[in-house]
Design a protein around this nucleic acid. Sequence first.
DNA 1: CGGTACATTGAAGGGGCTCAATCCACGTGG
DNA 2: CCACGTGGATTGAGCCCCTTCAATGTACCG
Lengths: 251, 251
Amino acid sequence: MAAVAPPLTRKLAHLVSLSAAEIEVLHEFQSAPRHIERSREVVVEGRKYDCLWVLLDGVAQRYRVLQDGRRQILNLILPGDFIGFPGCFFENALYSIGTLSDCTLSPIAFTRFLGLSATHPRLAAILFWSLSCEAAMYAEHLIGISRRSAVERIAHFLLELLTRLRVIGLADERSFQLPLTQEQIGDILGLTGVHVSRTLRQLREEGLVETAGQRITIRNAEQLSILADFERTYLNHFRMNEALLPDRPQP
Amino acid sequence: MAAVAPPLTRKLAHLVSLSAAEIEVLHEFQSAPRHIERSREVVVEGRKYDCLWVLLDGVAQRYRVLQDGRRQILNLILPGDFIGFPGCFFENALYSIGTLSDCTLSPIAFTRFLGLSATHPRLAAILFWSLSCEAAMYAEHLIGISRRSAVERIAHFLLELLTRLRVIGLADERSFQLPLTQEQIGDILGLTGVHVSRTLRQLREEGLVETAGQRITIRNAEQLSILADFERTYLNHFRMNEALLPDRPQP
DNA sequence: CGGTACATTGAAGGGGCTCAATCCACGTGG
DNA sequence: CCACGTGGATTGAGCCCCTTCAATGTACCG
């Protein structure tokens, strides 16, 4: 292959081996890059959409603004993730999606996507599984917010992010860069920005993490994992049950 | 139709109009009732499953027990809901599922379920949508726990439950019965049982709800909705984008 | 150089937790 | 029929984590 695989391909290849034809379809999904600036809305809650996108580059957030103005970020969308999925299955989008940095994304006609179950059933199953993963990550997020302290939440958040970013090649061994303010981290974890600041300081003082601008370095992953009750496998928990896939066509 | 429609049929018919053939398939899905006692495990976290079930009668919980013994209930499973979905898409079940009352459930071979996209694409799409709903309900749950006070959480919980139970005909105009202890309600909402007790008292004193054993009556739904910021539409938010369904065969 | 956005730190308050006692309904066995 | 045990609900007292409000610091940028 000429260049580095695009993020969606990379993410899925990390999980199952893909046939040439499947890689071709995924490639097509990622072949019409559109650029969007930082702090723009890609999806607005309540509106109707009939198309979805793959994020190719940048970071976006899925969020809801409450009555009283507080904001809850449901999850971070990283390169290789879908946008507008499962939202476009609903009459109206349930959440808004906004960019946190300049982003590149590629549209996929929804009908094209649906047709997949006829033309590439195996790939359709993999994408179906990918939706299951999203549900599971909401559930994990729920557990974290409900039952963990601020230190645990932040520790877990950082480790999860390191893991996700490493899969798509956007983090090195123990550090990564992230276009998030501390207030936004708070909006993800159900904390105030002020308390995120205090808690990060605590983690710094204990020598577990290091922050320099928007770069975060995990200094002691071992210790941090224990603190956060972070299963070192994390993403492996979401490993697909391959026995359920349709037979793979011979290459 | 001879008897009342079984719960899954009832739930889906509430959303889209179903053809006779589709009703027939759903009927088949609900035709092999198995009884399970209260307080049994249907799915155990970490084990592998290759079958799913529809809950026909009773109430079950999907939950995770943390390192320190605390428990988080992810959601309540009511008649018409699936069990083991999307869990069986993973190598190992991510959460446990246990019965909260005596339950009746009906197994569906996973292969049968997957084959649906070939034989009844419209029904497959509806079930796919149903999974999207599950993801969305986790997200709503997340927002609730993260950004709402105890009173708001409990008010919202009661209204949501009333809505869900009414769809499947298990609640009357403003009251329903629920086999949950206050501690379990706390495990759903991220509170302690003690605090659930105090908060319920508060709601009682304000004349908003009434409790008698396991029966809960909403005395002032209007007021409670305002308090909980409960959109009176709630489930309507999850309305399907029917334009995306394959054409309905002529009856 | 002033302005803006973000991070940091302090002081004070409160919502929910912990621990613990009491109460109540119910079932069971003597 | 009553004594007893058990699971759950209720209530109180004290505490702690996180919030709120506010001031200060700092980097960056026009």
